[in-house]
Design a protein around this nucleic acid. Structure first.
Lengths: 226, 226
DNA sequence: ATGGAAAGAGAACACTCGGAGAACACGCGC
DNA sequence: GCGCGTGTTCTCCGAGTGTTCTCTTTCCAT
């Protein structure tokens, strides 16, 4: 999942925050990894962010945060209104929600999140019936800004219909090489499949048809503002 | 996530509240950090607010609250119910009985939509309870791309809480000159009010305080993909 | 109710710190 | 050879900090 260098950097950042409360600057990280330049750090940080281990505010000094550590089952990090769900499948029969379903939130998704790690239910959320079609649906919490230009932001919940069918142009949850699951726009080019991020900072990746497995299709989105 | 100074200030505020129950004033913070002027504090507080560590009411003395602490697994949801919050009251994270509610869709909104057009109910839609707080809510369908960079697209449904209160930075439904209603980000500048679109193609418009009337505040968003 | 004190908002200036990113090179594994 | 991760140099510019001053908003005592 992570290269040696990425792992080393992630651990350094984690230790540093634990000890001082303040994340290191690029220069400090450069020193710690014994590099001569910040730009290597820049690339490592981007890689960690894309793989969902770091979260950061762009163009802000020291604005980074470790969201999870390797090999560990998903870091807790502010579950989405946990109290709300505690009641379980309470469906208010108050005549209101006849047209809504409670779906499981299976985890977070970003480039690099292994799907296996997100198979268990973390939470539940009620979803308007109007977003749903036929078949099985579930929710994922979006992590990172790789789809920002498609209006999908960090922290949004996406409604996914489970299917292995997808048309070129659809936004899908795709499993790459049986390893990492990402939310991307799928595009078919001849025999191969392109996965496009909606953010110029991320590159389109192209795969053979047997390297990518579609796990579901984006059908809805729910966002909460604080 | 935080710089040294930001961290230092946050910790000072946190300690101070824990010990005395009262948040420090700008002058007290100035002394604590050994600065010569409050204005440095002002910027630090803004930075902390932007990063989600502080919440505050503008123009209210000592009206601040620590919402989370750096890294340290999920800040305990310290109830902290001072007079401060009770007024503007956000949402009780606890009062979560309502799992979903059916709300009226009052119409479409964009720059220039006459308010008359959004007075009647056109439709209804079920909304997850987790998006709602206290008070009255309604829905509007977004028309146009003026908020595209805030991840709000043409055709999205936005959940609005009816209120005439808004903090700088909130996205609100604003009635301009009693005539047109628009969905914009509100920013207070001195005595006047700026309404910013999240699209460089649209200009920010600035008004006097009596020309703009806040009708509600954006609290959620629901999108359907076809 | 009103005037002044207290507290917050914020413009302006100077200076340093820190992040973004282009360009080029090297080694490894397939 | 090619892709990828890595290492290096250099440049550019925005962010963060400290200071001074001025203005607005609230709050309280008279």
């Amino acid at each position: 999942m992570l290269t040696k260098k990425q792992h080393e950097l992630l651990m350094f950042i984690h230790e540093r925050i634990k000890e001082t409360g303040v994340p290191p600057s690029f220069d400090e990280m450069k020193e710690a990894l014994d590099l001569a330049s910040k730009s290597g750090i820049h690339r490592l940080v981007s890689a960690l962010e894309e793989r969902g281990f770091l979260r950061r505010l762009p163009h802000r000094a020291r604005a980074l945060e470790v969201t999870r550590l390797p090999q560990q089952a998903a870091a807790p990090r502010q579950a989405f209104t946990p109290t709300l769900v505690s009641a379980g499948a309470v469906r208010p029969e108050t005549g209101a929600a006849n047209d809504a379903l409670e779906l499981p939130v299976l985890g977070r998704i970003a480039a690099g999140t292994p799907i296996d790690a997100i198979q268990h239910e973390r939470d539940r959320m009620t979803v308007p019936g109007s977003l749903l079609g036929q078949g099985e649906h579930f929710l994922l919490e979006v992590q990172g800004d790789s789809m920002i230009q498609a209006g999908i932001l960090d922290g949004d919940h996406v409604v996914i219909r489970r299917t292995d069918q997808a048309t070129s142009g659809d936004i899908v949850v795709a499993l790459i090489m049986g390893q990492e699951a990402t939310l991307k726009r799928l595009r078919r080019k001849g025999g191969s499949i392109a996965l496009e991020a909606a953010n110029p900072a991320y590159e389109t990746r192209i795969f053979g048809p047997d390297q990518v497995e579609v796990q579901g299709k984006l059908v809805g989105l729910i966002r909460r503002y604080h």
